[in-house]
C-alpha cells in the first residue's frame, strides 16, 4: 500500500484562490464539523475549555504579511490542507500501509484501522497536512471529503467537499486536474496557479492562485481626464450647470 500508484485515473483536488480568500475560517470549521461526524475517528479536542486548548483540524488558515520593497504592506490569508501530492512522501514512509494514494482518483487517505500512530508520515509531509489525533491515536488528514464527493445519500449538488460548499467568498474550487477542461484546470491555467514548495518534488495536486496585483497606482495621465475641471469655483460651476442643463435631452 505504501507504493504510490504509477498514475491515477483522475486527479481530484482543490484550487485555492489567494486573491479572494478573506480569511474567515469557515472552511476550517465546516471541515472540522463534517469530519468529526464522518470518516474515521472524530476530530477530538483536548483541554477544550481550559488553559491550553488543542484539537485536531484538517484544514487551517494562516495569514501572512507581505512587504514589497516599495509601496504599502499587504496581507494574504492562506488556507492549507492536504495537497494530495502525486509524489506523496507521507505515503511511502508509512510502515503499515495505512497511508495510501488511491489509484482511481489520487486521493491520499489513511486507513485508520491499520495505522499504528507512529507519526512518521506527518514528519514526511512538508505542508503540515497531517495531525495525529490525541484521543484516537491515529493519523488524521484531509480526505478530500471522499465520503461526500461520491455519496449517493447526498443530493448531487452537495457532492463536493464540505470546505468548498461552505466557502462564502467562493475562494475554493474542487475538481479533476486530469481533465484539462475542468474548472480547476482552467482556473490554474488562466490565473497562473502554482505549487507550494515545488523544490521538494512532492508534485502537489492542489494549486494556489496568486493574489492579483494590489495598489496599482494607475498612471495619473490615464485618470486625469476624468477630473478635468469644468470650473474653479462655485460661480463657474453654476455657469457650467446652466450650459450643461440646456444641452441635456429635454433640457431647457
Amino acid at each position: 500500500m505504501t507504493a504510490l500508484p504509477p498514475t491515477t485515473d483522475r486527479k481530484l483536488g482543490l484550487v485555492i484562490d489567494l486573491d479572494t480568500c478573506v480569511g474567515c475560517h469557515a472552511c476550517v470549521v465546516a471541515c472540522k464539523g463534517w469530519n468529526t461526524e464522518n470518516y474515521g475517528a472524530p476530530l477530538s479536542d483536548q483541554d477544550a475549555y481550559g488553559g491550553a486548548p488543542s484539537g485536531t483540524f484538517l484544514n487551517r488558515v494562516h495569514s501572512y504579511e507581505v512587504r514589497p520593497t516599495t509601496g504599502t504592506a499587504k496581507l494574504v490569508h492562506f488556507p492549507k490542507s492536504c495537497l494530495h501530492c502525486d509524489d506523496a512522501p507521507c505515503v511511502t514512509v508509512c510502515p503499515t500501509g495505512a497511508s495510501y494514494k488511491r489509484s482511481a482518483d489520487g486521493i491520499v487517505l489513511v486507513n485508520e484501522d491499520a495505522c499504528i500512530g507512529c507519526g512518521l508520515c506527518a514528519w514526511a509531509c512538508p505542508y503540515g497536512a497531517r495531525e495525529m489525533d490525541a484521543d484516537a491515536g491515529v493519523m488524521k488528514k484531509c480526505t478530500l471529503c471522499v465520503d461526500r464527493i461520491y455519496n449517493e445519500n447526498l443530493p448531487e449538488v452537495d457532492r463536493e467537499p464540505a470546505c468548498v460548499r461552505t466557502c462564502p467568498a467562493g475562494a475554493r474550487h474542487f475538481g479533476d486536474f486530469a481533465d484539462p477542461d475542468s474548472n480547476v484546470s482552467r482556473l490554474t491555467e488562466e490565473r497562473g496557479g502554482f505549487d507550494l514548495m515545488p523544490e521538494l518534488g512532492t508534485k502537489p495536486v492542489n494549486k494556489y492562485l496568486p493574489p492579483r496585483e494590489r495598489d496599482r497606482s494607475e498612471d495619473i495621465d490615464i485618470l486625469a481626464p476624468y477630473l478635468e475641471p469644468v470650473t474653479e469655483d462655485a460661480n463657474g460651476f453654476l455657469g457650467w450647470l446652466e450650459r450643461t442643463l440646456s444641452k441635456l435631452p429635454g433640457g431647457r
Binding site: D19, T20, C21, V22, G23, C24, S63, T72, A73, K74, L75, V76, H77, A169, P211, R212, R214, D215, R216
Partner: peptide
Amino acid sequence: RTGYNAVADDWYG
C-alpha cells in the same frame, strides 16, 4: 488591512 481590506485591490489606510 485585514479580511476584506486584505483582498481589496486598492487600500486606503
